[in-house]
Design a protein around this nucleic acid. Structure first.
Lengths: 199, 199
DNA sequence: TTTATAACCGAACAGGTTGTTCCGAAACAA
DNA sequence: TTGTTTCGGAACAACCTGTTCGGTTATAAA
């Protein structure tokens, strides 16, 4: 009854309610930032009974996640770029968030919540991890420091994203992408090449 | 009356009160994690009147900051290492947090607060920035992407720190330091060397 | 169309948090 | 000693969360 109930409900009332709440979250986040939005705000804006809300979502964060997982698909799409290019997600990501910059700022910026960022890091980490595994020299075993590398890369990327969304950095998506890649790629590539184990 | 009142108060009552509250914060953070600590908890543990608390601190975060700035000094100490070695703060930092790991976990881990992390990033950013400036080739102007680099480096480091403090990563301080350096150093060094402007 | 069911409303509630205010009592510095 | 500062602590308004419950309404299926 709670949470990650992905399958579409058969009952029109359920669909209506869930969509109304999700939409309300977006609107309110744009107006006040994620942190400042309360459940009471949500049910007022969505025009939904309090008990109804809690019948569908565990809390505010649950609404967020139900809205946020779309990004996962968007990220998994990107690595279709030419192989040999690490971190293909980077540029599309910056570009996407540039178009949606109001929402991005409200979610990731100073008034955004750590929950958003934590979730983003989770999602991104799986993507980066897969990409690094795919980029390993053939017939080699993943180095034990793989997860450390993933953490580094994700941390660097998300940090850039946050500052950028916050307006502390003025740069084009291309410039952001270039900076990210410049810092991170050389180290990762040599580490991957060097860390080749036995087949 | 509020906040960053660094100079020692002349009144013993003031000193007593402030110290009691700060100590209470440490104890409670160790027990519940920063996020879960409330002002009510603080004044109970410190055995201080509610009005007294608000006469000294604006809020919970204010207490934290008054306790946290000691780290700044600790970081500025490290770069006394041999020049030419970038990110000298890294290993000492990991080692220090390893000794204080209970507190580190309570502050930086999942139950720690974004305020702690944000403050840590701020402090670390100034240190990294100074270090990069000092490591520039002589008679060159800093590249415009310097702040992007700083953000990347700080982001990567703090991400490692968080996961480590959280227990998601099992590694010695030396291993953490090595991983951090392996990913970040090559990119930064070439960027610094290449970005040399005219004198 | 009828009907059983599931979803909704909304008010009310208990429990928790924050930050302010007030004034008498106590501790302090001079 | 004395005038000033700080402390205590209760009481307060305002807000938030999550739960409960009985009556109402929409829906899907028969």
């Amino acid at each position: 009854m709670f949470g990650n109930q992905r399958r579409e409900s058969t009952d029109r009332r359920v669909r209506r309610t869930r969509k109304a709440v999700q939409q309300a979250l977006i609107e309110l986040v744009l107006e006040k930032g994620y942190e400042a939005v309360t459940v009471t705000d949500l049910i007022n804006r969505a025009d939904v009974g309090r008990s109804t809300f809690y019948a569908h979502f565990a809390d505010k964060q649950d609404v967020l996640f139900s809205n946020l997982d779309e990004l996962h698909g968007l990220l998994r799409l990107a690595p279709a770029a030419r192989p040999g290019t690490l971190f293909a997600f980077s540029l599309p990501m910056f570009e996407h968030l540039h178009e949606q910059r109001r929402l991005a700022r409200a979610l990731l910026g100073r008034r955004g919540g750590s929950a958003v960022i934590a979730r983003g890091e989770q999602i991104l980490a799986t993507v980066v991890r897969d990409e690094l595994l795919a980029a390993l020299p053939p017939r080699s075993t993943p180095p034990p420091s793989l997860d450390l590398m993933v953490t580094c890369v994700v941390g660097a990327f998300m940090a850039l994203l946050r500052k950028w969304a916050d307006g502390e950095i003025n740069a084009t998506p291309a410039e952001m992408d270039a900076a990210f890649r410049a810092v991170v790629t050389p180290g990762v590539e040599t580490a991957l090449a060097a860390g080749a184990g036995r087949p």
